[in-house]
Simulated scan of single mutants.
Amino acid sequence: MSALTAETAADAEARLRVDLAAAYRLVALFGWDDLVFTHISARIPGPEHHFLINPYGWMFEEITAGSLVKVGLDGQAIGPNTAMVNPAGFTIHSAIHEAREDAGCVIHLHTVAGTAVASQEEGLLPLNQTAMLLNGRVAYHDFEGVALDHDERPRLVADLGERDVMILRNHGTLTVGRTVAQAFTQMYFLERACAMQVAAQGGTVRLPADPVQAVVEQQSQGLGFVADLLVWPALLRKLDRANPGYAA
């Protein structure tokens, strides 16, 4: 590897660390965290499929770029930071990062609204514009217990397929993005849609006509562009005001 290539790789990892640390703190800021549980990972560019994940036992509001742990697909820490990582987090995230070249970031949460919808037979319903933006993107995976068994990984990957949003039945929510920005923005829409669904179920719900749903699904195709160029910079400015220091 040339010195220039090595420097470029190091710079890419440094930028990724900052974005991932920001995502952890934004999850806490939005009230989506679950003590020290759940996890967000980001794959480091390169053929090794190394990825970054949080040190187990840290609150999400505490995460910094430097605290993130780099791990390989064998579960071993790479580099000087050998902090413990969540075993269930490794099971879920290693499976997706290994199988999907486009899985730059994976977010998994246990929010009240997300888990409520994950516990409903029909899953996410296209009740409103927010939910319809996810039409055609949502996969489902049946609950098999706490994700400690590596034998579950091929089933998880098969259920996810090429989609970038997953409802883990009786468990929680998951999104995949090429960038941290895209995975976070997808999760924002998923969590909002779940909260809206739970709120709407207090009365008689009304589903939009199928042609309208198809229109909104088509209109959602530019979401990645919006996430990277508009949403993420605004979120970082918000975080800089509310909880700076994540880049350390």
Rank of each mutant, 00 (worst) to 15 (best):
G177P: 01
A183Y: 12
G177D: 09
E144V: 11
M187I: 08
L133K: 14
R153D: 12
H110P: 03
R192V: 08
A131G: 12
L125F: 03
S119P: 02
Q182F: 04
Y188H: 13
P126W: 13
E101C: 14
Q129W: 14
A95P: 08
Q182Y: 01
M187N: 02
E121L: 14
D159V: 04
D102V: 09
G202L: 09
T175F: 03
E191Q: 02
E191C: 01
H93R: 07
V117T: 01
T91Y: 08
G172W: 04
A200P: 11
N128P: 02
T130R: 11
L133W: 14
H97S: 04
T173I: 00
V112D: 15
A95K: 00
I107E: 03
A199F: 14
A158L: 11
A103H: 00
L148S: 00
T130V: 12
H97K: 03
H93D: 02
E162C: 05
I92K: 11
G89Y: 05
Y188I: 14
G114Q: 12
E121Y: 15
P154D: 10
V165L: 04
A200Y: 08
F184W: 01
D102H: 06
G136S: 03
F90S: 12
F90M: 10
R163Q: 14
Q186L: 15
R153M: 12
T130Y: 15
M166P: 12
L133Y: 15
S94A: 05
H97R: 03
P87W: 09
D164Q: 08
V117P: 00
P87M: 05
A195W: 06
